[in-house]
Nucleic acid binder design. Structure first.
Length: 742
DNA sequence: TTCTAAAATATTTTT
DNA sequence: TATTTTAGAA
């Protein structure tokens, strides 16, 4: 059968899809052969180039749709790309290998699961399940959870997975960070347990595929010859294993350079703490000899003044490929960036609210404005302020739909219904609502299950059948198990939506929330469950739904198009744009974040600076940068200095002004509790009541630190201690962070 | 087992 | 401050 994709009615009437592209953009689209790196600065039409290139390859009949591999980092980006390709081709496109790294890997892995000892229908664990499983696996090691929290061990395992390292491949030298080198063994045990459960964690999706590619060249070759063109978005954010996966797929047998095109911006690499390696983009030419490099530098988004400021900031970084944004908009010079100093963080929030109100009165929609901050906790003060002023807003990011407890509970119920072997789902819900089946009973059951070689659910059923369960719990648990099997029957008869509803009702889960004393919250949870049922209904089967949520964490549901101010972190803002952008909290310690600097030194500073660059380049017309002299952090007030990034702004593109407390007070009708700045303790960051009479720490004392464990004080310099830790060696620590071990 | 109160602890989070 | 984790009592 011949697909009519390239039939005449489908050919372009002219190269009209290339119209409107500038020279570099067009070159990036038309350079189809050989490796290509497109360095696309912020707002330079990156997505447009990528989608046009994809369409171009199809329309030039260089490849069939299924011969193109297109990788994005977010589902949103994948969706957008798919839509835009359809728009250019003027018809829906199917059979595309277009998606995130992880979704593409799942698709492959379902085919080849047997090669690494999994069944085709393996489940994908979420973060909760991962930690729960790891905790169980770790039990025999009897590690102090204070010093070696499971989350940290998990993090270490993830880091290894991100580097494509299997347990066997880890040398003792690579496992010295935590728990005396026992993490490798824990990792191995964890992987073994996953296999028993026929499950993968998120990192495994990539890890298993790379393993298969390495161990089964015939599988790799199949994909290598299939994919004649590879497109990669956000290349600056790839980590080691993603890079390896790409390299393997892009390798040509005949020695010809691969047709791999990567689009990225080294200046917007902001996920190194997630394993992203900026080196991948910096060394592209070495990896793919003969690569063409095209720079897209014409920015059509921001005013020349905003661009100039952003360029000036990023120019302070050394680790760059070098790229200068040129203003594509010459219609206006634009307003200068306003740098506003406020006495404290409450004033900052109030000023932003007032500015938003003024702009709105001048005819600017709320939806055209965004407040972008460094950390999630900063949103709160803005929420307070906007709410009091009656300004509509929405917080983007934060707790995501599928991460809410009630949603996970409901899903666990369904998993328990459909998969009697799914121990993790079962554990989550056996005692929810309370059925008198706590930790003790659970571990007893786990033991019995292990001996019998059965799942928890099967074991419990057997015990019930044999009358082994004593007391009043027997009836409750019997009802619970009956509800599960009832729902199981219903699924085939009435479908998965009804089945979900039934299990939640009959298990008493819904009643638990209905009877909840905190009615407001509980009502919200019930609403969420209703929303979940609606979402489930959009999928043909429960399996399809489960796969969807495993890969798509952001519930892109109920995206109402209301006119509201957006609040989000700088990370969440990447890829977006707004006419007006507020950038609060530009203070040393907050932004750049002290924590990052402590951990990553100069590299981290550069990443913070890239974050500043990302923030500024989100703005089309107006940008406001704010900093407060004093900030409330949790319960305490902390003095802070303006961020060094403010000093890096070009003076001629900004206008500074200071909001005095006096002006604020008289101009404001809010009754704020007066907070005399005189008697505020400013010395210690986390000042406590008992901070003053802290015992002096003598030289040679043994101390304990929350993070580093125990160590000996080897030098004193006022509040600064030099401590030789048993685990991590020599560190400089503030005396306030340690306690003396008697 | 479960309830309660005290204690601990707060970045960024594409999948 | 607000939330989550914990330890101890009922």
């Amino acid at each position: 059968m011949v697909d009519d994709l390239f039939s005449p009615r489908f050919s372009p009437s002219g190269p009209d899809y290339l119209e409107g592209l500038n020279t570099e953009q067009r070159l990036a689209v038309e350079t189809t052969q050989g490796p290509l790196l497109i360095l696309a600065g912020a707002g330079t039409g990156k997505t447009r180039v990528l989608t046009t290139r994809f369409a171009h390859i199809l329309l030039q009949q260089l490849a069939w749709p299924e011969q193109i591999l297109a990788v994005t980092f977010t589902n949103k980006a994948a969706r957008e790309m798919r839509e835009r390709i359809s728009a250019i081709l003027d018809r829906p496109v199917e059979n595309l290998w277009l998606g995130t790294f992880h979704s593409l890997c799942v698709r492959m892995l379902r085919q080849h699961a047997a090669l690494i000892g999994l069944e085709r229908n393996f489940t994908i664990l979420d973060t909760d399940d991962q930690i729960r499983l790891l905790k169980q696996v770790m039990e025999p090691w009897r590690l102090d959870p204070k010093r070696y929290p499971p989350a940290r061990i998990m993090h270490q395992i993830q880091l290894w997975k991100d580097r494509a390292l299997l347990p066997d491949a880890i040398t003792p030298a690579q496992d010295t960070e935590l728990a005396n080198g026992q993490v490798r063994a824990i990792y191995a045990a964890y992987q073994a347990r996953l296999k028993e459960l026929n499950a993968c964690d998120f990192g495994d999706l990539m890890l298993h595929m790379v393993t298969i590619f390495r161990q089964h060249p015939e599988v790799l070759e199949r994909y290598q010859s299939r994919f004649r063109y590879i497109l990669v978005d956000e290349y600056q954010d790839t980590n080691a294993i993603q890079y390896l996966w790409l390299r393997l797929l892009a390798r040509r047998k005949d020695g010809q350079p691969a047709n791999i095109a990567c689009v990225g911006d080294d200046d917007q690499s902001i996920y190194s703490w997630r394993g992203a390696d900026i080196a991948n983009i910096l060394r592209f030419e070495k990896d793919f000899p003969g690569a063409t490099i095209i720079r897209l530098e014409k920015n059509y988004r921001s005013t020349p003044r905003i661009l100039s400021a952003a360029s000036q900031i990023i120019a302070h970084n050394e680790d760059r490929l070098g790229k200068t944004l040129q203003p594509g908009r010459t219609d206006v010079d634009g307003d200068p960036i306003e740098v506003i100093s406020t006495p404290d963080s409450d004033d900052e929030a109030r000023i932003v609210g007032a500015r938003i109100q003024t702009l709105h009165e001048q005819g600017h929609a709320y939806g055209s404005m965004a407040i972008l901050m460094r950390a999630g906790f900063q949103t709160r003060s803005f929420e307070d302020s906007l709410m009091r002023m009656g300004i509509p807003y929405q917080v983007i990011g934060g707790l995501r739909f599928y991460e809410r407890a009630e949603i996970r509970d409901a899903i666990a119920y369904m998993r328990a219904v459909l998969y009697p072997l799914d121990d993790l789902a079962f554990e989550r819900i056996v005692n929810l609502p309370k059925r008198g089946f706590g930790n003790v009973a659970l571990s007893r059951l786990r033991l019995a299950a292990q001996e019998a070689g059965l799942s928890l659910q099967q074991t419990l059923q057997k015990q019930l059948d044999q009358g082994l369960v004593k007391g009043k719990n027997a009836a409750t648990l019997g009802e619970f198990m009956a509800a599960l099997s009832h729902a199981r029957e219903i699924t085939s008869k009435d479908g998965h939506v009804i089945a979900t509803e039934t299990i939640l009702e009959e298990s008493g889960y819904l009643t638990m929330w209905r009877d909840d004393p905190k009615t407001v919250e509980a009502a919200g949870r019930l609403d969420n469950i209703r929303e979940l049922l609606r979402a489930i209904g959009e999928f043909p089967t429960m399996d399809a739904f489960l796969e969807h949520i495993a890969l798509v964490m952001d519930g892109d549901m109920a995206q109402d198009e209301q006119d509201r101010v957006s609040l989000m972190t700088l990370h969440a803002a990447k890829g977006l744009e707004f006419p007006t952008v507020f950038l609060p909290g530009w203070e040393e310690g907050i932004f750049p974040s002290q924590r990052s600097l402590d951990e990553g030194g100069n590299q981290a500073l550069e990443e913070e600076r890239r974050l500043a660059y990302v923030g500024l380049t989100r703005a089309r017309e107006r940008a406001f940068i704010l900093h407060a002299a004093s900030r409330r952090i949790y319960a305490n007030w902390q003095d802070s200095l303006p961020s060094r990034f403010i000093d890096e702004l070009p003076e001629d593109q900004i206008v500074r002004h200071t909001v005095s407390q006096q002006a604020q007070r008289s101009g404001s009708f809010f009754n704020r509790s007066p907070r005399p700045s005189m008697n505020r303790p400013s010395s210690s960051r986390y000042g406590t009541k008992k901070a003053a009479p802290r015992p002096a720490i003598p030289l040679g004392a043994t101390i304990r630190h929350k993070r580093y464990g125990e160590g000996t004080v080897v030098a004193l310099d006022g509040e600064q201690l030099s401590v030789n830790f048993e685990d991590v060696g020599l560190k400089r620590i503030m005396a306030g962070f340690v306690e003396i071990v008697p």
